[in-house]
């Protein structure tokens, strides 16, 4: 299964020549750069290189842009991202901090929060996420993830949902409610979703978690098995939808089928699926 996933993921593509497509755009930008180089031209070519997945070229171009104009905001942002993705945390932090110095903005705080989170510097991640844009789902998801106190997590996600109205935060809030065994608020919403949804697996799993906390183990098991049946119909054996692999991993873990749950977790880990979003599965498998 993992092998199949690796095959259907992009790894094969690395061997292809990424130049053949965006070539003409890159060539024409190169020509302009040869005639009269500007920070903006280097930045634009960097963006094209990144689209062609030529990360090294992209990085060099962003750096060249910054040599001409050290406060080019988009170049700073993109260079910081490239460093962070390459796990060059120090450089990423330095570049993003330079961006924050030239133009402080909530978006830059979120960038720094992400960079510090990737660098496993959680106190600094928390410091910056508190100044991140409140209209972003990701701000609240990361913020909640960084909080220690369960009640604070619930409150953060609730506030996030009130601001953004996003269903993603509403569902994350319900998950947090379940984790704090606050089934009184969660259960009516879960029941409503179960009657109005076409695919019910994620809601069956949520109800099973509530039922387990109420020691109704048999009822929980029934929900989990029903969820698994539905998930198997939706999961393509060769190239699965990773969001469903996560659901299935949860169902297995809750059914105490640890080995199968572990396999699903491995698929998620290898796919670079954000650890932020499979934290619950990791916790259940501990």
């Amino acid at each position: 299964m993992i092998r199949a996933w690796i095959l259907c993921s992009g790894i094969l593509a690395q061997t292809l020549n990424a130049h053949e497509d965006l070539n003409s755009v890159i060539r024409s930008l190169s020509q302009k750069i040869r005639n009269s180089p500007t920070a903006e031209l280097y930045y634009q070519r960097g963006i094209e290189y990144r689209a062609a997945r030529e990360k090294l070229h992209a990085r060099t171009d962003f750096q060249s842009a910054l040599k001409i104009n050290p406060t080019h905001q988009a170049a700073l942002r993109n260079l910081a991202l490239l460093h962070s993705q390459a796990h060059e945390h120090k450089q990423a932090i330095a570049v993003a901090t330079a961006l924050l110095d030239t133009s402080p903005s909530p978006q830059t705080h979120l960038l720094l929060a992400d960079i510090f989170y990737t660098a496993k510097d959680l106190p600094n991640a928390l410091k910056h996420v508190q100044l991140s844009p409140p209209e972003e789902d990701h701000t609240h998801l990361l913020h909640a993830h960084l909080l220690q106190d369960d009640e604070q997590v619930v409150a953060q996600l609730k506030r996030g949902h009130e601001i953004t109205k996003s269903i993603v935060l509403r569902n994350a809030w319900i998950d947090a409610l379940i984790a704090t065994e606050n089934s009184k608020t969660a259960l009516p919403i879960i029941e409503k979703e179960l009657t109005s949804s076409r695919f019910r697996a994620s809601w069956l799993i949520r109800r099973a978690r509530v039922l387990r906390s109420q020691n109704q183990k048999e009822a929980a098991k029934r929900d989990l098995l029903e969820a698994l049946t539905e998930l198997q119909k939706r999961i393509s054996p060769t190239c699965p939808d990773l969001t469903l692999i996560y659901d299935r991993g949860l169902a297995y873990a809750l059914l105490d089928r640890k080995k199968e749950a572990q396999t699903d977790l491995e698929i998620l880990t290898q796919s670079r699926f954000s650890p932020l979003s499979y934290q619950l599965l990791v916790t259940l498998l501990r």
Partner: peptide, 8 residues
């Protein structure tokens, strides 16, 4: 990415 807000 599948864990991003849009995919969720």
């Amino acid at each position: 990415r599948p864990a991003g807000a849009m995919a969720q």
